[in-house]
Simulated assay, not measured.
Amino acid sequence: MESGTLSTNKIMIRGIGARNLFGTANIRTYFGDIPLTDGNGESSIEDLELSSLSRIEVFKGPSSSTYGVGLGGTILLQPEYTDYKSANSIISISAGSFGRLVVKTAIGGEKFGVNLIYGNNHTDGYRNNNEYNRHTLTIISSIYGGENDSFSLIGSYVNLKAGILSSLDRKGF
Rank of each mutant, 00 (worst) to 15 (best):
I139C: 13
Y81E: 11
E2Y: 13
R100P: 03
G99M: 09
E57P: 00
S166D: 15
G70W: 09
L101W: 02
S86N: 10
N9P: 03
A18K: 12
S166L: 15
N133L: 13
K60P: 02
I45F: 03
T24E: 01
S142Q: 14
E57H: 00
F31E: 01
G17Q: 03
E57A: 00
L71F: 14
E46M: 01
K111Q: 10
I107V: 15
I154W: 01
T5K: 03
I140T: 13
Y81W: 02
L76Y: 00
L137T: 09
V158H: 01
S7H: 06
I93K: 07
G61C: 09
G99I: 08
V58N: 06
G39E: 06
S86M: 10
I140D: 10
N40H: 08
N20W: 06
T136P: 06
S166M: 15
F59Y: 10
K85D: 11
G163K: 00
S89G: 14
S64V: 08
S97A: 10
T5P: 03
S65Q: 11
Y81L: 14
I143W: 02
N88M: 11
T5M: 01
G32P: 02
A95T: 13
L21R: 10
N148I: 10
S7V: 00
S92N: 11
T105E: 08
A25I: 14
I117N: 14
S52Q: 03
G15R: 01
I27M: 03
N40Y: 14
T8A: 12
S156F: 00
R127Q: 13
S89A: 15
K111C: 04
S65I: 09
P79T: 02
V102P: 01
T82H: 03
P62S: 12
F151I: 15
I11D: 04
G109R: 08
I117K: 03
G39S: 09
K104C: 02
N148D: 14
G32L: 05
S141E: 06
V58T: 13
A87H: 11
S86L: 08
G146I: 07
I91P: 00
S7E: 08
N26M: 04
N121E: 09
T82L: 05
E2I: 09
P79V: 04
A162I: 05
E49P: 07
R55K: 06
S7G: 08
S152A: 10
E80Y: 02
N133F: 09
A18W: 00
T123G: 05
T138H: 00
I56V: 15
I154R: 09
K111L: 09
L71I: 10
T37Y: 12
R134T: 07
N120I: 03
K60E: 09
G17Y: 05
I90W: 02
G70C: 06
L165C: 09
A18N: 06
M1E: 06
E80S: 13
G68H: 05
F22W: 11
Y84V: 14
S141R: 03
T29Q: 04
E131Q: 08
L77P: 04
S89R: 05
F22A: 11
P62Q: 04
K10H: 13
E46N: 07
G113K: 05
S52P: 03
V102A: 11
F59S: 01
A162Y: 01
D33N: 13
S94N: 14
E147P: 00
D33S: 13
N148T: 14
S65G: 12
K85W: 02
Y67V: 08
I154F: 04
I27C: 03
H122L: 04
K111F: 02
K10G: 12
E147N: 06
